[in-house]
Amino acid sequence: MGLVDRGRLPAPLTKLFNIGRSYSMWVYQWGLACCAIEMGAAFGSPRYDVMRLGVIPLPASPRQADLVVVSGTVTDKMAPAVKRLYEQMPEPKYVISMGSCANCGGPYWDSYSVTKGVDQIVPVDVYVPGCPPRPEALLEGVVLLQQRIKHEDMGARWRGEGFKPIVRESEPIVVGGGPIE
């Protein structure tokens, strides 16, 4: 993948790779609190069935994962572990912040022990609001992330520079804020 690292991939090939990457995401379930159960319902239950979207919720370790779903309250005691987990993941890596607690602190906005937002520790690609969000909301977050990956400059992501669009500028996605297409 030397071409990708140097950012010299031809545009049609980038598009092809992006389609392949967006439909084979291995997602690590970083379940922390209440949202973990809704994430389990979205990823592990027959009713919602995330695998039809091309997402595989099986990796037992963050080292095998492309996407991590931080679902639930991140406390100050847990924050170093979240950071370490994120650093263990190989590039390119994506983060979905699920639930109000992970987004901004949620009902614990004035608590002394809760980190107000996981985006203080790791960069977040998609925010899914709700307390907890319904499984459908998480699935929409996954679909929006897939749309985003399709418009991404792969080289920048490989070099660890984060999201750089090849088509247009884009902010972090909030589910319910409309599609980015």
């Binding site: 922390l32 609190a33 309250t73 406390t75 005691k77 847990m78 572990a81 614990y108 004035d110 608590s111 002394y112 022990s113 809760v114």
Partner: peptide, 14 residues
């Protein structure tokens, strides 16, 4: 324990 301590008892006071 304590990785999920969210301070309920203190929060209820406010």
């Amino acid at each position: 324990a304590g990785y999920m301590h969210r301070g309920y008892e203190k929060l209820t006071e406010v």
